[in-house]
Write a protein that binds this DNA or RNA. Sequence first.
DNA 1: GTGAAAGCGCTAACAG
DNA 2: CTGTTAGCGCTTTCAC
Lengths: 324, 324
Amino acid sequence: MADVARAAGVSSATVSYVLSGKRPVAPETRAAVEEAIAELSFTVNVTARSLRTGRSSLVALIVPDIVNPFYAQLAATLQEELRERGLHVVVCNTRARRDEEQTLLAEAVQQRFAGVIITPFRLKPRDFAPIVDAGIPVVVSADVSFGPMDLVTPDARAATRRALEQVAAAQRRRIAMIAGPRDATGGDPRLEHLRALALQLGMALPHDMVVRGEHTREAGAAGFAELMSRRHRPDALFCGNDVIAVGAMEKAHELGFDIPGDVALIGHDDASFASLVRPRLTTIRYPAAEVARAAAQLLTERLDGRKVHKTVRVKAEFVARASV
Amino acid sequence: MADVARAAGVSSATVSYVLSGKRPVAPETRAAVEEAIAELSFTVNVTARSLRTGRSSLVALIVPDIVNPFYAQLAATLQEELRERGLHVVVCNTRARRDEEQTLLAEAVQQRFAGVIITPFRLKPRDFAPIVDAGIPVVVSADVSFGPMDLVTPDARAATRRALEQVAAAQRRRIAMIAGPRDATGGDPRLEHLRALALQLGMALPHDMVVRGEHTREAGAAGFAELMSRRHRPDALFCGNDVIAVGAMEKAHELGFDIPGDVALIGHDDASFASLVRPRLTTIRYPAAEVARAAAQLLTERLDGRKVHKTVRVKAEFVARASV
DNA sequence: GTGAAAGCGCTAACAG
DNA sequence: CTGTTAGCGCTTTCAC
């Protein structure tokens, strides 16, 4: 920048102001500076800028499983949205482990990230105290609140209700669920949600019709095998997400159960493979791209100075395919 | 750091040396410093360090499509590997567009990234000149070389041969391929490779049996429809990657073709959904995790001072499933 | 074994 | 409308 200033016959402050536009610069001065910049193919040193201003251009995206297409899509859209505003996305995969979630959060503080967008899995609300105290804007994408931070959360009421209605219309009454692990934060709100709505519709989701496991195909397979070995088998099976659901579906094929003949299967998220499996998976779609846009919006508002925290609800949608 | 120095009654230089271990420090001094660090819960300012040393801890991963599970897995493993060495992965999605690839590469220079790991799609070798000149280590993950840089590349000879042999054993002779777009760099080496091997085995892959398109389900569907509308239909169809292949498979269902009865289908990569579709997709597996580990290794070697460029070959593997 | 001090490249007062 | 200058927090040479 000193070189540019010398070449243009101005001070380095002027070069800085030409770049940032934070104060008016005479047209001919600006022209001279821009020419010098082009001539020397100068680019600002972002590190020096960060050091001086105290804010970096890095945003951490912390998710349980980047290989899950839902999160991959989230990352892709987020990256696109934030790049327009000069921000970069650092992807952090926690593999749903609490220690990694904690480490990553701590590292975001240490690295002075500009912001964090996170889907917590086993974190507790109090784990967020250090990062909030550090003044780093945090957007949580989750079913429940984790404290005084921006939140993007699904509105799945209508979609879940429609799913249950369709199940009921098919004369299915024995509802079951393969939920997330018991020690996940909130103990899987999707389960509580489903149970409450089922009750409203005069159906029940008894505790012995719920099995739990990680958000993996293996857990889905194991859960399916367990539920179908019960004396009273379910005839409609909800899953915590689509990864679990396809695990269950694979197990169904293996054990010779027909879907939806023997049991209907309903997933969550509409991950890209949901429409590829056979039968096509009926699911409660949570639009990753929209979630990403909402999160990007909330984050930039915060960076622009908004003080109070906000919650954005993103509508989930029932996608009827062949598995019900 | 000044605070820590004051609390420990030493100079900030000593604190720095305690942290870096770059020069011996007396045990009791070290203890005092470490206590002060813990007391004040001090963490180094990475930005200041970067400015001073001239190297950041950021590595850009530039890929055509992060939603493709192959690249998602690559990102996940890479992130894991590099985090151990204090490096962070910034994910950059190009959507297979040349302009975005160029922008991202330029940005890596401007941001003074520590390194870049890239799967180029439409870039030309000369596009790499600026970043190489800037002294930023680049690892290319591709089928062909892009110049004097580290390269991770598949060794798919044996796997492709086995695929062709199995096709031949099933008395199939009319081979076709849905390849990548004509303007992709190198014009899809997988096609050239397949053609050469087919020739060796006494089979042919004539030009009119090749259609081209993006690496998308839509392109796969369109390609399948076109090939199957020919007077002489293929009975074995190779695809540039698994995304194309499932697109083709969907179209086959739609048009009432049986796979593998009417036509065998062979993908590339073994993306996670390949084993989920029906019939399960036979594919030439390119192990993303292994590629990531190789790339991480090459990159860190470079950062540690290796001057000459190296090439690592990662063996591809034929995965026989139900679609052949 | 330790300290003093220069300086990485930039931004934002402050001064004109 | 433009320039001067003081740091941001760290690493590293030089001196002791």
